[in-house]
């Protein structure tokens, strides 16, 4: 390796490189670079300041929205999970039917009065009926 490095070809290239003149950096280029760096730094600072203002504002905004959602839900279910998805509609359907039944029935039997519970079929002991009268 050492022998190769000290070969004539290598030494000639080394001399040629050493003989190259040292070009000093131009002041104008340095100045423009500095200006660009300052500009970039200023932009970064501006963004940081904006973020410093916006982040808390965004947080406050989110908190306010949450507060509004929570505050303006006075009718939220005070209870409890829903037992049956169709329970509410079953009640409303019953109510609707009851209203219509009353409209139709007028002075006659209404929705409550036609149920089997309202019309028990088991007679009380000892009661007479019309057939007993016919047998007299």
């Amino acid at each position: 390796m050492d022998r190769k490095l000290e070969s004539a070809g290598q030494l000639a290239i080394s001399k040629m490189v050493q003989s190259l003149p040292d070009e000093p950096l131009s002041m104008a280029w340095r100045s423009s670079l500095n200006e660009k760096l300052l500009e970039a730094a200023a932009k970064k600072r501006k963004k940081q300041r904006l973020a410093w203002v916006l982040r808390p504002a965004l947080g406050l905004g989110l908190a306010s929205v949450l507060a509004v959602v929570v505050m303006f839900q006075p009718h939220a279910p005070r209870t409890s999970p829903v037992a049956d998805k169709s329970l509410e509609s079953a009640i409303l359907t019953d109510h609707h039917n009851s209203v219509l039944f009353n409209e139709v029935s007028s002075a006659g039997l209404n929705a409550n009065e036609v149920t089997s519970e309202a019309n028990p079929q088991e007679p009380e002991d000892g009661l007479w009926n019309d057939s007993d009268v016919q047998g007299l």
Partner: peptide, 13 residues
């Protein structure tokens, strides 16, 4: 009723 219900859903419907 012998079960809880959803007042919001009832009111909405």
């Amino acid at each position: 009723l012998k079960a809880p219900l959803n007042p919001e859903r009832l009111r909405a419907n």
